[in-house]
Design a protein around this nucleic acid. Sequence first.
DNA 1: GAGACATATCGTACCTTTGCGTTTTGTATT
DNA 2: AATACAAAACGCAAAGGTACGATATGTCTC
Lengths: 127, 127
Amino acid sequence: MSQSDSPPDEAYSALDRLYDDPEARIAALRDSRPPERDVAGQEAVFKALANEDRLRVLETLRESECCGCELQVVLDAPQSTVATHLRKLKKAGLVKSRKKGKWSYYRIADTAVFELLDLARAVQGDA
Amino acid sequence: MSQSDSPPDEAYSALDRLYDDPEARIAALRDSRPPERDVAGQEAVFKALANEDRLRVLETLRESECCGCELQVVLDAPQSTVATHLRKLKKAGLVKSRKKGKWSYYRIADTAVFELLDLARAVQGDA
DNA sequence: GAGACATATCGTACCTTTGCGTTTTGTATT
DNA sequence: AATACAAAACGCAAAGGTACGATATGTCTC
């Protein structure tokens, strides 16, 4: 993951054999690397989405805002488990919450979340 | 995760207090649950996307098809590590590969993958 | 202010994923 | 057929994520 730890020298020599101008190809490949920030942000989003229970929560919130205890019914899981999932979804910016009395109501933060869910289903569908 | 293990009876009684007709609400919540297959498929896709190295590979493949040894340069990681990531991407249906001589060339399987990457960046952006 | 109750947080045992050295497989080249 | 080499598969230690009981926090009702 860093630069000096275990450089794949073998890979370099592979490129040496593969191209007339390996330096240029290497430079091109390196340039195509996206900024670290972007990648880290994307990873955080996908990590939050990479769990069945959390996906079920999002699909439910698609229909309507829900409070925590309703989501317990949906997931059929204990309160602390549900709360942990909701915290993750919130931290990743996928849902927002508002407090009303002793209830916390959760809702999808951005319509882009719907699109992510739909695309994942589509990709999977014709795999 | 299953039905009989640890039912959140507490949640049921919460709904009892919350609604005039809790049974109806419970039924509605349960009906909103998507088919198990769908959720499992979505999870698989998001799991495959939930890793910085794999995201970097996908961003690189956005530009052009690449062989394994090129991706080693991009990730700056040993061959076995890169191969593991590629296997996962392939199993999730995100990339396809073709073999030419002793090289394997990888490419994005579906333009939906680009959209997923873009959406994740967008969601993250205004979080 | 005491009790009930929805949530949030903490601690931790358990399970999954990752990274990577090593070995194996498949394809050129000599 | 021996060598070279890209890629795939195997194996296991280390890291990370999950589930959930227990506990803490905040809010309503009496």
